[in-house]
């Protein structure tokens, strides 16, 4: 029960962006399109989960005095690894997210969860916390980018980050002089 609550908390009560006000800088920078939001959200979730697990695993042998440098090294290693993997396998997304991947290193969510949760809890709990917080972050990005993408383009497009093919597009089309000012036109590609 406690685990479930921990997991759910990341979405609403302790949502990193809306609840804890963590990672606001990247949230603003990257939330221009749904694609970027999904890509960044998943990257952060992956790195956050992995860093939480590693930090939790070494929490008993990490000397208290140097825990922050150790966390930073762990997180930076993970981020660099993910960055290289993305450059190799998700070229388009890598190009879109650009410098913000490297900046995940200093994303306060990750260091914040390492300090506040992973350094005090077991590996499984920390992993769940990482996934919950990561998805909470993704969810916030989706909310913001949904509004921003729609205001900018009057449509929503979701793209497969692996091959840059569009999955689905929702377009707001206005019909001239019809009685209904607008309609949502859906195109789904698979």
């Amino acid at each position: 029960m406690n685990r479930k609550e921990n997991f759910i908390a990341g979405f609403v009560k302790e949502n990193p962006v809306f609840g804890l006000y963590l990672g606001l800088c990247s949230a603003l920078a990257i939330s221009t399109t749904l694609d970027n939001a999904i890509g960044m959200g998943l990257c952060v979730t992956l790195i956050l989960t992995a860093s939480n697990m590693i930090i939790s695993a070494i929490r008993k042998i990490t000397p208290d005095e140097i825990r922050i440098p150790v966390y930073i090294v762990v997180i930076a290693t993970l981020v660099s690894a993910v960055e290289m993997l993305m450059a190799a396998f998700m070229k388009e997304l890598y190009a879109n997210l650009g410098v913000f991947i490297s900046l995940i290193v200093v994303n306060c969510i990750i260091l914040g969860r390492a300090e506040a949760f992973a350094s005090k809890n077991g590996i499984v709990d920390s992993a769940l916390d990482g996934i919950g917080m990561g998805l909470g972050y993704t969810f916030s990005l989706l909310l913001i980018s949904g509004v921003r993408e729609f205001l900018a383009t009057a449509s929503w497009t979701i793209t497969n980050p692996f091959n840059n093919q569009s999955f689905c597009t929702l377009v707001l089309t206005s019909l001239n002089h019809s009685r209904f000012p607008c309609s949502i036109h859906q195109q789904v590609h698979f």
């Binding site: 042998i61 990490t62 000397p63 140097i66 440098p69 150790v70 090294v73 762990v74 930076a76 290693t77 660099s80 690894a81 290289m84 993997l85």
Partner: peptide, 18 residues
């Protein structure tokens, strides 16, 4: 020594991924 070990390990991981 602890920080050096952590650093060395992460360098190893990174060079492998690279």
């Amino acid at each position: 020594v602890f920080l050096a070990v952590v650093g060395a390990l992460s360098a190893g991981v990174l060079s492998y991924v690279n």
